[in-house]
Computed example of a mutant assay.
Amino acid sequence: MRISTKGRYSLEALLYMALLPEGEYTSTRAIAENTGLSDGYLEQLFIPLRKAGIVQGIRGPQGGYLPGRAPQKITVGEILRTVEGALEPVDCVKSKLCPMAKDCMSQHTWAELYKEINDCVDAVTLADLAKAYETLDQVEYAI
Rank of each mutant, 00 (worst) to 15 (best):
V83M: 08
G77E: 12
L66I: 14
P67S: 02
V90L: 04
A86W: 00
G53S: 07
I79S: 07
L87Y: 08
V76G: 04
K73E: 13
L66Y: 09
G85S: 12
A86L: 12
Y65S: 08
E84T: 05
A52T: 08
K51D: 14
V83N: 03
L87T: 02
I58M: 09
I58R: 15
R59A: 11
I74A: 00
V55Y: 10
T82R: 10
G63T: 01
Q62W: 05
P71F: 01
D91R: 12
E88W: 11
P71A: 03
G60Q: 12
I58D: 07
I54K: 11
L66M: 14
G68Y: 00
I74C: 00
L66R: 15
P89V: 13
V55A: 11
C92Q: 02
L80Y: 04
K51W: 11
V90G: 09
R69C: 03
P67G: 01
L66S: 10
Q72G: 09
D91P: 10
G85F: 03
G53V: 00
T75S: 15
L87S: 08
A86V: 14
Q72F: 09
K51Q: 13
R81T: 14
A52P: 10
K73D: 14
I79D: 11
L87A: 08
G68S: 05
K51P: 09
G85P: 15
E88S: 12
P61S: 07
L87P: 12
K51L: 11
I79L: 09
A70S: 15
A86S: 15
E84L: 12
I58P: 02
Q62E: 13
P89C: 07
T82F: 08
E88L: 07
R69Y: 08
K51N: 13
I79N: 04
Q72N: 14
P89S: 10
A70C: 10
E88F: 09
R69W: 06
G64T: 04
T82S: 08
C92H: 01
P61R: 05
R59T: 07
A86I: 11
D91C: 02
P67F: 08
K73L: 07
G60E: 13
V83Q: 01
L80A: 03
V83R: 03
L66A: 10
A70V: 10
A70H: 15
R59V: 03
G60L: 01
E84R: 00
T82V: 04
E84Y: 05
G85N: 14
I54S: 06
G77I: 06
P67C: 02
V93M: 07
G68T: 04
V90F: 03
L66N: 08
Y65K: 11
R81K: 15
G53Q: 02
G53F: 01
G68W: 00
D91V: 02
Q72W: 09
G60N: 12
P89N: 12
L87M: 11
Y65I: 06
A86H: 06
V55I: 10
T82E: 04
P67T: 00
E78Y: 01
E88H: 12
E84G: 08
Y65A: 06
C92N: 01
